[in-house]
Structures are given as C-alpha cells and as structure tokens.
Design a binder for these strands. Structure first.
Lengths: 204, 204
DNA sequence: AACCTTAGTCATCAATCGTTGACTGATGTA
DNA sequence: TACATCAGTCAACGATTGATGACTAAGGTT
C-alpha cells in the first residue's frame, strides 16, 4: 500500500470509476462548476448513468468527500509531527492527477448544497480524529486548524494569491507549521528538520 | 458636460441602491447563488436595469467587492492593536443587515469569475495596506493572515462549524487573536485589555 | 423457451441563468 | 416645438443545468 492516491481497492466497476472521476473533478473545481456531464465524459458513459448510479448530484458529492477525506489518509504519513503532516496536506505540490485529501473540501465551501456534507466531514473526519490523536487540544482549536488549512488552500489554489506562490516553498511551509503548532500548543522545533533525529531535548 | 451637478456621493441614486443590495446579497450567498433577479427584487427594479447599470454581473460583483472591502473600512476601528481589529472583522456578530467588510470575500471565492476580482482585492485592499501599516511583516505572512480570516469566516458562517459556534465568543476571539499575533510577530498582550494602557513595557 | 435483473443509452424535460434589443416616459435644452 | 438624453420596463433569447421516463442489450436462472 505504498503509493495509494485514492481508491482503497482497485475495484473496476463503472460506479467506482465514476466516483474516482468525481473526486478529481470536485477537487479541481467547485461544486457548482462541476457538472455531471463532465464527470460522465471522463468515464465515457452517459450522464444519466452517473445520476442514476448515485441518486443525485449531492449524494455523489457526499460519497466523493467521504472517500477523499478519510482520516486514514489525512494523517496517513504522520511521522509524529502533526504540524508538518497537516501542512503538507495543503502545501504538497499537486501533479496532474495527484490531489490532496483536502482539495475537495477546499473547493466547494460556498455552495449551500455542499455545506451540510462539509459540516459532517469537518466533525467526523477532522476535528474528532485530531482530538483523539492529540487529546490536549480543544475542539475549537482543532476547528481553527481546519479553518487555517482551508484558507491557505483557498488562497493558494483557488485565488492563486501571489504572496503564497512566489518565493521558496520551505519558507511558506515554515510559517504554516508555526501557526498550526501555535494552535495545537506543541513545539514545532521537535520536528523542524524531519530526518535529523534530534534526541528529544528536554525543554521547558 | 459642465453641469455635472450630480453630487459624487448622494447615495440616493438607484444605482447606489442596487450596489448596496448587491453587497448584502453577495455577502450572504456565493457568487453563483446570487442572481441578478434577486438583487433587482430587493431594490424593486427590473433585472435588466441591474444588468445595464453595471454592464455585467462580474462588473457589479467587482464594484461590490471594492466598495465593501475598502481598507478604510477594514482597518477603520484600529485602536493600535491589529490582531484584535482583524479578529473583530470576522467574529463580530452580524445583525440582519449588518455585514462585515470581509463577508463578501468569504463567500464567492469558488467561482472562477470571482477569483480574479478577489485576487486583486487581496493584494490591493489587504496585503498592501497591511504591510504599509506594519512594515515588519512580510507579504507572505500578510496573506496568511487573510487566509486564516477567510477560513474562520467560512467555517463559522458558511459551514456553521459547531466548535466555532458553541462556547464563549471571547475564548474564540482570544485564539484567533493569538494566531494573528503569531503571524504578525506582535505581542497580543499589548492590547489584551483594550483600555488599560500598559505603558509600553520594553520587551526582548 | 420464458423471465428477471443489471448495465447503460437516448431524447427530452423544466428550470434557471445572464444577456440583449426594442420600447416607454419623463426631464431637460436649444 | 423639436430634439436629445436619462431612467427604467418588457419580452424574449441561447445556453446550461440536474433530473426522468422509456428504451435496448446482455447474462443468468428456472
């Protein structure tokens, strides 16, 4: 299970291919700007079949969010340093078909149709697992981490804000990690140089 | 053309009433979910007149964003403590017709049509004025402040995330201020109790 | 053979959107 | 009076959207 991007198992049914295409579409464009016809065209089936396979556009979106943002993926590569893990979820450079687990959430915040789904996602797939993993953090601060990650993703990928695109990525990553560390009340220095194995210097 | 007697800011013309209604609409719903017909109905004119008064929906949105987010408004009540000023821009409780200067940005980042406008807004009406006001902060960090504010606004107002709605507002405000202070590298304590006049204790 | 389910297509629906050309009516202005 | 401009309305357009009912074709079961 090394380079698993989306699908947990390589089911080949048309329904799964539709879901996979939907995740890509919803991760690259907003809920409103993603048409069932686009998704159908990607898979090569009729749009009516996309609709019938999932019942409605909103239900398809629901399944796409759930499949794309599962906690196992969000915290998958956690090497013990949550700030760096979370920062990478938003900042990791995306190739053509490679998407981050949070991209689909970053898009589609706006549409009311999507907001109920996202509310559930936020609670079940982010706040709860994060608090479970780091019991000292409050639900409020966990949500603020999500807010910050979402905001950074939006400004960087949707709005394409220049101050976040120009310059070194490492500098941006450092700032993002520092904010997350502030919210989680953990020391960012403990994992500053990821592979240097600082022998857990006892601080404070 | 000599007698352009129309006062530059009578604010009584139908055009201005349309613009005002547009700001309210765009601040409460996304760009896509806001129809020219809705705005026209608010003012009580024909939808065609809304369109003709501004040339296109996108141009109307542009003027709405510019009028709603002007730096004078963003930093209007600045009492010398930027973190608290900015936090209040997002957290201030909104009445029926009362909106924050950033609400219109919080909605409507999704649509590509709107994102160009928002990119310009971010640069001209937020990053640049902020850096001008606090010259020690980098453009990147200024943009990260905007990202955080946008994310908080989205989760709180659009998604209605419970962790940001439950509990005391002051606790949330404290966390938000701390994050902003971290990014701006200023001491939040300097304005913690706004009216206490701490005599500028020389720190560091 | 007859029958049922699954997979998928086709044409079309109703609704909504922003946009536009043509029009009316009032208000000046020469 | 004649003319021009501004404020605003009216009806319709073309495009796009998600949703449906009716249909075909294949596969399996009895």
């Amino acid at each position: 299970m090394p380079n698993r991007v989306i699908s947990p198992d390589a089911s080949d049914t048309t329904r799964d291919r539709i879901l996979k295409a939907a995740i890509l579409r919803f991760s690259a464009h907003s809920y409103d700007d993603t048409g069932l016809r686009d998704i159908a065209a990607d898979v090569g089936v009729d749009m009516a079949y996309v609709h019938r396979s999932f019942g409605s556009k909103e239900k398809l979106f629901y399944e796409a969010v759930k499949a794309s943002g599962r906690p196992e993926q969000l915290f998958a590569e956690d090497d013990g340093c949550l700030p760096s893990t979370l920062a990478n979820q938003i900042l990791s450079r995306k190739g053509a078909n490679e998407i981050g687990a949070l991209d689909i959430v970053v898009q589609s915040f706006a549409s009311p149709a999507a907001s109920r789904v996202l509310n559930e996602f936020l609670e079940e797939d982010f706040v709860a697992p994060l608090v479970r993993k780091l019991s000292t953090v409050s639900r409020r601060r966990a949500a603020l981490v999500a807010a910050f990650l979402a905001g950074v993703g939006i400004l960087k990928d949707a709005i394409k804000a220049e101050p976040l695109l120009e310059g070194e990525r490492s500098a941006l990553e450092e700032d993002v990690k520092q904010v997350i560390a502030t919210l989680l009340e953990v020391e960012v220095r403990d994992c500053d140089s990821p592979r240097e194995h600082v022998p857990h210097e006892t601080r404070r």
